[in-house]
Structures are given as C-alpha cells and as structure tokens.
Nucleic acid binder design. Structure first.
Length: 228
DNA sequence: TATTTCCCGCGGTTTACTTCA
DNA sequence: AATGAAGTAAACCGCGGGAAA
C-alpha cells in the first residue's frame, strides 16, 4: 500500500511578546502597515538598536549553555520565520554554506538555523504521521463497512441458494458454490455472482473498493451483467 | 580492510513562554 | 486580576550512520 499524503504542510509560527500584553505598544504606529502587539517580538529592542540587543542575547545564550544563568528563549521575528519557512520550502536540509548564509541574513547563529530546521523537519514529519494516521483510520473504517456488507451479501446469497448449481462464473460459465467470492486479478474487484432462480436469469453483484489519493473510496453495490 | 574521528540528522526531552479557562 | 493546566517552540542531549583520513 502506498500512502502518499500531500506534504504541503505549512505550520504557523506564533510570535509573541512576553511582558507587553498589558503595556502600551512600544511602536505607536499600531494601525495598518504598523506593528501590532502580536507583530512585536522579543528580538525587537524598544530603542530600535536591535542588532546590539540580538548580539547581547546571543552572548547570554552562549553563557547559559555552559552552566551560566538559565537560558533565555529566543523568539523569532515574523520576518525571520517567513524567510526560514521560505528556504525550508525550497530545501528541507541545508548544507553548511547555505546555513551560514541564511544565518547571516537572519542575524542568527548558524546553530540556531540548524536547530530551527531540525525542529521544522520534526514538525513536518509529525504532521505527516498524523495525516497518515487519519488516512488509515478512514481506510479501516471503510474496510470494516465493506466487510460487513460483503458478509450480508454472502448471507443473502446463501439464503437464495435453492439447489446446486446456483452460481455461474461470468468467465467460464461453470457453476460455482454460492458462497464463492473472488478478487478479479485484472481490475481487482471483489465479485460475487448469484443466480436468480433459474438458469436463464443471472444477476451479477459487483462490489469494489478502491483507494484514491484522497482516501479510500467505496463504490456501492451495483448490479451489472458485465462484471469485468 | 579495519579503525578512528568528525559531522550531521534524528528522536526524545527540557525549558521558557503563551494562551485559555 | 491571579493562577494553574495545557500547548508551543527553541534549545539541548545522546545516539547512530556515513564519509574521510
């Protein structure tokens, strides 16, 4: 079975600004084109000297990584997230040169870019796994339903059984047991052929279950005289 | 060819922070 | 307004695989 869900997962990154939820916006241009509270970010320094602030935060992080004060968590700006997402769409992994360039462009350390890509891949994989899980659940549900229906059909066919032969093969025109259900090797249809009280009127019941990219699709029971 | 070293990705986990009831 | 639970994402850790020496 080939499960190939669409992998166009685009996870949204939330940008938040701790400590500013109840304070007035730092940037007073809160209207259109301006910066809402949600647009603001920890990386943004109130005074506007954000490069220095980021540099300082990097130093803090490096210090915290070797036993210093507890690490502070960097929050990426919207623009940083956008660029990272963009490059992730192009490539899910980065070579050292790309990583360096992207880090430079984003004013982040290469390690941060690397970590972001790792986490992004993990999120992507998680989402895909969830989709596959959903897909399999639906498939299981429809198979169960199909199974139930086929069981009913078997019962019906058995009930119709008057005396042998009651079922005629559409291919060989040979008599078959009423309970015979077979899978057509060509079109992969589950078919059962019932003889409707008498050798001249044969009703062929065809039930098919196929899988599409969107999920399992069940074709409903349809009488047909030309199965396969 | 076998061993060692280095690098990288991954799975799992921790932690800082946000959101919501 | 305060608070705790749940959720999210950045960062870390340890391990294994592949490539180069």
């Amino acid at each position: 079975m080939a499960v190939s869900p669409t992998s166009s997962s685009c996870l949204e990154l939330s940008i938040s600004m701790p400590g500013f939820t109840s304070s007035p916006p730092l940037n007073s241009s809160g209207g259109e084109g301006g910066c809402t509270v949600k647009d603001l970010d920890m990386n943004q320094v109130p005074s506007g000297a954000d490069e220095e602030w980021i540099t300082a935060s990097m130093e803090d992080e490096e210090e915290s990584s070797n036993g210093g004060p507890p690490r502070k968590k960097l929050r990426l700006t919207k623009e940083q997230s956008r660029l990272l997402e963009e490059s992730f769409r192009q490539n899910h992994t980065l070579n050292p040169k790309q990583k360096e360039a992207l880090a430079m462009q984003l004013k982040l350390r290469p390690r941060q870019v690397e970590v972001w890509f790792q986490n992004r891949r993990a999120r992507s994989k998680l989402k895909q796994t969830e989709m596959e899980c959903e897909y399999l659940k639906r498939w299981f549900g429809s198979l169960t339903e199909q199974n139930r229906r086929l069981q009913r059909e078997v019962e019906e066919l058995r009930a119709m059984k008057v005396g042998p032969p009651t079922v005629i093969s559409p291919h060989s025109c040979e008599p078959l047991p009423a309970s015979t259900l077979s899978m057509c090797p060509r079109c992969e249809r589950v078919t059962s052929t019932a003889h409707d009280k008498g050798p001249t009127r044969a009703t062929t019941i065809t039930t098919t279950a196929t899988l599409s990219a969107k999920g399992p699709v069940l074709h409903s029971r349809q009488p047909s005289s030309t199965a396969c």
